[in-house]
Amino acid sequence: MPLIELTTVIHAPIERCFDLARSIDLHKLSTEGTEEEAVDGVTSGLIGMGQHVTWRARHFGVTQTLTSKITGYEYPVYFRDEMVKGAFKRICHDHVFESSGDDTIMKDRFEFESPAGILGVMANKLILERYMRELLTKRNAVIKEVAEGEMWRAVLSRR
């Protein structure tokens, strides 16, 4: 099962980074090009413990839906989202936040399992691991840019 781990240092308070990471509106900003939209559950603002969101997006030319639920939550240091319905066999994404002086260290631990047995394993190695890493890296860059600038005020005002 592929595991992607990323660390991003953000010059902003931990609470701001935590809230941006669970913002549906920021997620939409970070997925430009995939026509991604929240279509059920929490569709704007901040998602919290026990809540779910269903996303519809276009990846590899195919429109797909994926529902994830927040299954772990400790403000402002940790939350977990897990796929409960979608094309993958399994997705589990841990978000961990640590304060370090005036910075926040944001860590992602993203595990996924593709369906289709050996074909899924081959797809992981050939395409999906790199594709998912790029999506997460882009998302983290957007969180960093928004958190370190003034745009965070507009994004988080949509609570």
Score class of each variant (00 low, 15 high):
Arg130Asp: 08
Ala123Pro: 04
Val142Gly: 06
Lys138Val: 03
Asn140Asp: 08
Glu148Thr: 07
Ser100Ala: 14
Gly61Met: 07
Leu156Tyr: 11
Gly61Phe: 12
Ser23Ala: 15
Arg139Asn: 06
Thr67Asp: 09
Leu20Glu: 04
Val39Thr: 05
Val146Asn: 05
Ser157His: 11
Ala57Val: 07
Asp103Ala: 11
Glu150Cys: 05
Asp102Leu: 09
Ile10Pro: 01
His95Val: 10
Glu145Asn: 15
Lys138Gln: 12
Val42Ala: 03
Glu5His: 00
Leu20His: 02
Arg133Ala: 08
Phe112Tyr: 15
Ser30Pro: 04
Glu74Phe: 10
Glu98Phe: 01
Leu66Asp: 08
Ile24Thr: 12
Glu32Ala: 11
Glu113Trp: 06
Gly45Glu: 01
Leu3Phe: 00
Ile91His: 01
Lys125Val: 02
Glu82His: 01
Thr137His: 02
Met49Lys: 15
Glu148Tyr: 13
Ala87Gly: 06
Arg16His: 12
Phe18Gly: 03
Thr8Glu: 10
Val84Trp: 05
Phe60His: 03
Asp25His: 10
Leu66Tyr: 08
His27Asn: 08
Lys107Gly: 02
Arg90Gly: 00
Gly33Ala: 06
Met83Phe: 01
Ser30Met: 04
Glu32Thr: 03
Ala21Ser: 15
Val39Ile: 15
Asp81Val: 04
Gln51Asn: 09
Leu29Ile: 02
Ser44Lys: 11
Met106Gln: 12
Leu128Ala: 13
Glu148Asn: 13
Tyr78His: 13
Ala21Leu: 06
Arg90Phe: 08
Lys89Trp: 00
Asp94Ile: 05
Gly120Met: 14
Ile10Val: 15
Gln64Ile: 14
Gly149Arg: 05
Thr7Lys: 09
Leu126Phe: 12
Lys85Ala: 13
Tyr75Met: 02
Val121Ser: 09
Asp81Gln: 12
Phe97His: 00
Ile91Lys: 00
Leu46Ala: 04
Glu145Asp: 15
Gly48Tyr: 03
Ala57Thr: 10
